[in-house]
């Protein structure tokens, strides 16, 4: 049997989370094929170059410009009989899509896998990462989403996958229509794959003060993240949120500024290699996970840091 990985893209590039899903899929020890649904052929042409993959199942149609779960579900179902493993990253796209397929194939999905122990045994965090569960599937076919920080990226070049063009399955009358989007544009690296992340919390006091983080980030070529409290208060956009119910990150260096260190925040960043905490409260729980803690007022520390990097 074969493994199918769902490719995520923004119509220009394949997302780095897909590369992580591919390397997770390779651990299952079967042939790995990719499914691309897009509005033009160039995504499949990029996908075929990913190292180690066999085939690219290519669905081309205008309605795939936006990743509407109902449309993608139809594509995956159309080819599902050849596969016993379906893998996607646990990005919002993967989370949105995979349970729909699971339901229609009568499979209990396993979400946020961080380790593939064997072809039916997986590890995943539960309760905001306070526990790690080992789960065993009794099913012949499995669907998993993988936490990208737990798997390396597959090499995006050098592969020679075969492209197989497939007719778009009929989708019943359109019940779900794309209206518009507001995507965050930034020249900085993407949050979930950046080498360095600097995040601000409620201690930043104001959205304008995020400029202090931006200037440090620019010098370090870092991504900027935020706690839930900072996002809820409107200091930063929703896609900055790191944590149990936001994004998971595991950069080489994570700098938490004005963040107390609630378990829900730690869930999304405590696998970072080196953690720095800057907080004026020396009792803040964030110091318990920090390699280097600096007790101080962020409004003094950040400008000094920026000038000395």
């Amino acid at each position: 049997m074969r493994t199918l990985v769902i490719v995520e893209h923004d119509n220009e590039n394949i997302s780095s989370s897909t590369l992580c899903a591919v390397s997770a899929a390779q651990k299952l020890g079967q042939d790995v094929d990719l499914l691309v649904a897009s509005s033009a052929n160039h995504i499949a042409e990029k996908a075929q170059q990913i190292m180690g993959i066999s085939k690219v199942l290519n669905f081309v149609g205008d309605n795939f410009k936006n990743e509407i779960a109902e449309d993608l579900t139809a594509c995956i179902l159309a080819v599902s009989k050849d596969y016993n493993f379906f893998v996607a990253s646990s990005s919002t796209t993967g989370k949105n899509l995979m349970p729909r397929i699971s339901a229609l194939l009568d499979i209990q999905q396993i979400s946020e896998v961080i380790e593939i122990v064997s072809n039916n045994t997986f590890k995943k965090p539960i309760y905001a990462g306070a526990c790690i569960a080992t789960v065993e599937s009794q099913q012949e076919k499995n669907i998993i989403t993988v936490r990208t920080t737990a798997f390396e990226k597959a090499v995006p070049e050098g592969g020679s996958g075969q492209i197989e063009n497939i007719d778009i399955p009929e989708v019943e009358s359109r019940k779900s229509v794309f209206v518009g989007n507001e995507l965050t544009v930034s020249d900085r690296p993407e949050l979930t794959s950046a080498d360095i992340v600097i995040s601000g919390g409620r201690g930043m006091q104001d959205g304008n003060n995020f400029a202090l983080l931006d200037s440090v980030a620019n010098k370090l070529n870092a991504a900027v993240g935020a706690s839930r409290a900072a996002v809820d208060s409107g200091f930063a956009p929703n896609d900055y949120q790191v944590g149990q119910t936001g994004k998971s990150v595991a950069p080489n260096l994570y700098i938490a500024v004005g963040i107390s260190g609630a378990i829900q925040h730690l869930a999304g960043m405590k696998d970072s290699k080196t953690i720095v905490a800057i907080n004026k409260d020396e009792e803040a729980p964030i110091f318990k996970v920090a390699d280097y803690g600096l007790v101080g007022d962020l409004f003094e520390v950040l400008p000094e840091l920026e000038s000395k990097i």
């Binding site: 396993i110 965090p125 526990c131 790690i132 065993e136 599937s137 009794q138 318990k288 390699d291 600096l294």
Partner: peptide, 17 residues
Amino acid sequence: VKTVKVESPSEREEGIK
């Protein structure tokens, strides 16, 4: 899907100030 084991994650060592 059956849960066969539940463990605490490996804790980070507290660093320095």
